Structures are given as structure tokens and as C-alpha cells.
Amino acid sequence: MNIIIIAIGNELLNGEILDTNSRFLEQELAHYGQKVHRVVLIRDDMDAIETEIKRCIGEADYLFIMGGLGPTEDDLTRYAVAKALDQELIQDLNELKEIQKKFEAYGHKMTSNNERQSFFPSAAKNLGNPIGTASGFYLLERDCNVFVLPGVPSELKLIFQDSIVPILNEQWTQSIVINKLIVKVIGVGESTLDTMIKEEIAPKHSIRWEIIAKAEGVFLKFYPIDELSKDNWKEPLQQDLERHLGHQIYGYDSDDMNEIIAKLLLKDKLKLGTIESCTGGYVSKYITDRSGSSRYYVGGMITYTNDLKNRLAHVSSKLLEQYGAVSVETAEAMARGAKKALASDITLAITGIAGPTGGTPEKPVGTVCFALLDHKNRLTLKKRIFVGDRSDVRVRSLF
């Protein structure tokens, strides 16, 4: 099965935004056991888009085209698709009414250029758009299934789930389950894990593996060498890995760290509170990204300045002067002060130097100190030095 993705937009090639849509499609298609053959990024250029569409239709069984369905002059995708397939653009009057209704609901006046979003190639099936005005569409051209989608990630995801998944389910009558085990590890580097697997794990198991480093840890993907093996290879491997890695394994397969945190807190009926400095609210945002987090998360403080650390968390000026804002001593004082102020059972404190300025030889950029005070007043202190830019340091502090 040959699957190709075309992502269209100058902003993708200028480095203004990341192409997260291709990643989403790759992950969704993997549920069917399908792999994307290639991803092509193209500027907003009519000839280039048309040429690439013609080339890909000649190669692909499934072609996903994303972006360029907006109302402006540089939104060329619907015109390029029609030209590449030698089809006329036909206005869908029902679609025009839907667009008008959405503008009325938004309390905005529809401008004339939005009308172009109601035109589709003559053989296209309208896939709709539950939340936006750029509806996707579907065509079958020379045995190639062509899906054309808007570039806004939230809109693309909804159209994929609501309109494309039913088509794929009908064509791919049975999902192909990839026989694999994903092990999620934190606190151990890629090279250490790779060496451990080669020397301690692989000799006892008929497996191949991949190692992927992510912000939330290192993901180990294991596959049986015999693709037709049943799942009975997983349990012995899992037990062996747990003997070597213990609590540094935080999950398997679809396990999500945020979900795991929630389950642990809810199980013991504990409330979490946070106090942050260098992360500026990253931890609070991450926790509250999960719906229902108010059941176990009381809230947090962002004490970015020493003055606020003193006034809100009662970190003494003497301690700050003696040890500095970035120290395990200050992190501990922040945790104790925040626990009292927030009335939380467990409190996490983070203070550090995200950079690019502020570092010293003793405390270089990337130095981050953590304090965790639990419901039994047991204290855990950590100090780490992360490598990377400001964003890297803040994200790595989160995990």
C-alpha cells in the first residue's frame, strides 16, 4: 500500500509553523498497520502543487493533501486539484449556506472571498467541516483515493475522524494490528538503554527494537522477529525489562503520563499543588490539559521573582541570599510554603535557569532544582542540568 502526504503552505517551509498534521495522519494510519511512503512539503505555488499532485496520483494508492483551502489569494489547493485532475470547479450551494450560517453564529459578516470555499472539483465528495469554513473533499482518481483537507490541525482531525475513518474502515475491512510492545522509560538515556537491550535482553528474546527519544521519556518499541508470532512473547520480555529497569518504566503501549498521574492521585484521594519559577506555568498547563483535573489538582503558583517567592511562599530573604533562587534549598522552601498556602497533599516545586542568560560557572544555563513534598511530609530533592535552548530546558523540566 503506497500512501503519500502532501502538505502545502509557505509557512511550513519558512519555519513559521511545524507540520504536526503529517505526524497525526501517520499515527492514525498506523492503527491500520499502514505506513506512509513519503511526505512532501510544497510552497503556495500553483504549478508546483499541480505537478506534485499529478506525480503522486500516478504512484499512490492513497493521497492526503493538506492546506490551502482558505479564502485568500494564496489558498490554491482546490484550483490545483481541479486542474491536475482536469475537472471543473462546481459551486455547492448547500455548502455556501453552511458557511453563511457559521459566520452568523460567529457574529461576523461573511466577505465575498469566503464564497470560493463552496466550490469543489466536479467529481468530489464533500467531507464537511464541523467547526470551520474550509470543508475537505474526497475523490477517486485512477485507483488513487485522494483526500483533501484544511491545514488547521483541529479541523483536520475532526474531518479525519468523522468522515475519513468510515471510508477507510469500509475499504480496509479489518484493521491490521501491528504486533509490538511499547515500553515508556524515564530517567535513562538512549545509549544506556540500547546497550542494556543488546547485552542483557536481546540474547534471551527473539526480538528487534527501535528507540525513540521524546520529551516525556524514551520509548522502546519491540517487535517479534517472527512477524506471525502471537502475543505470548510480550509477557516474558516485559518481566525481564522490569527486572532491569524497575520504576523507571512508567507505562506501556498507549499509557499516557498525565493519565497515570491522575490515576495515582485519584486512587489515594490525594490533591496535588505546584509552585513554579523557570517553567512559568508549564506544569500547571500540562496537568490541566486533562479534563477533570480539578478532582486531584488544587492549582499552582508562578513565583518568578524572589519577591513573590518571599511574599507568597514565605521563602526567607536570608535563604535566598545565602543559596540563591536556583538551589535545592530554595526549591524545598518553595514546596513547604506552597503546600501550606495551597492546602495540597503533595506539592511540587521547580526553580531553575532556562536561559539563554542568567547562568554562571557554578550554576550554568539549564540548571533546574526540584522539590517534591508528599502527603507524609517526605521530601525528595533533585538537581539537573539540561542541555538545549530556553524552550528545551522548560519542557525537559516538565518531564
Rank of each mutant, 00 (worst) to 15 (best):
E26G: 15
K285H: 15
R38S: 14
Y250F: 15
K339S: 07
G33C: 12
T330M: 00
K97V: 13
S293P: 11
L228R: 13
R311D: 00
P71Y: 02
G9Q: 06
I211A: 01
I65K: 05
Q171L: 15
T367V: 03
E235C: 05
A30P: 07
Q322L: 15
T347F: 11
K339Y: 08
D374K: 14
F103M: 04
S344V: 06
P71Q: 01
I131D: 09
G292M: 03
L379T: 10
N10F: 06
L76S: 10
N169H: 12
D307G: 11
F222N: 01
L241A: 04
P121H: 01
R142Y: 14
V81Y: 02
N113H: 12
S135K: 10
G324N: 10
L85K: 04
S391V: 11
R390I: 04
R55C: 03
G217F: 06
A7M: 05
A84Q: 04
I275K: 05
I178K: 00
S291G: 11
S277E: 01
Y106G: 06
L348D: 12
T279C: 14
S344H: 03
P130R: 10
I5M: 01
D74Y: 03
I3D: 00
I65D: 04
L270D: 11
R243M: 11
I201Y: 07
C56E: 14
A123D: 14
P224K: 09
A48T: 08
L381R: 06
P150G: 12
F119L: 12
L373E: 04
H37I: 03
